[in-house]
C-alpha cells in the first residue's frame, strides 16, 4: 500500500494520540476500549498495543468510544505489545 505522506498518521490510520498535560491529565484519542480500570492503574486497548497509565487517585474525566481523558496524579505511561 502506498504511504500517504502529506497527512498526519492519526488522520490516515487509527494510531492512538496521547497528550499529556503535566502529570495530572492525559488525553487519549482513538483508543479501542477499556481493559482495566483501577484507581492506580488504567489499561486501554489501542492499535499500537495496550496503553498502561499508572498513578494515584485516577479517574476518567471523560470516557467515550473515541477518547478518554484521565485525570489524577499520573506516574507512568507505557505501551506494551503491538498489532
Amino acid at each position: 500500500m502506498r504511504e500517504m505522506r502529506f497527512f498526519p498518521a492519526e488522520l490516515t490510520s487509527d494510531v492512538p494520540v496521547i497528550t499529556l498535560s503535566g502529570n495530572e491529565l492525559v488525553h487519549i484519542e482513538q483508543h479501542k476500549g477499556l481493559e482495566c480500570y483501577q484507581e492506580d492503574e488504567i489499561v486501554l486497548r489501542t492499535s499500537a498495543g495496550k496503553l498502561h497509565v499508572t498513578g494515584k487517585e485516577m479517574y476518567f474525566k471523560t470516557y467515550t468510544a473515541f477518547e478518554a481523558v484521565i485525570a489524577g496524579s499520573i506516574d507512568n505511561i507505557t505501551i506494551q505489545g503491538g498489532k
Binding site: 477499556l34 484507581e39 479517574y59 474525566k61 470516557y63
Partner: peptide, 28 residues
C-alpha cells in the same frame, strides 16, 4: 467487570464524565 460496562456504554455512544471507581462501584 466494570471495564466491560464502560466498553459497552462507549459502543452505545454514551459519554461517561467524571468517572471515579471505588472497588466494585463506579460513579459517573
Amino acid at each position: 467487570n466494570l471495564e466491560r460496562f464502560f466498553r459497552m456504554t462507549a459502543e452505545q455512544g454514551v459519554a461517561c464524565l467524571k468517572a471515579r471507581r471505588r472497588g466494585r462501584r463506579c460513579t459517573f
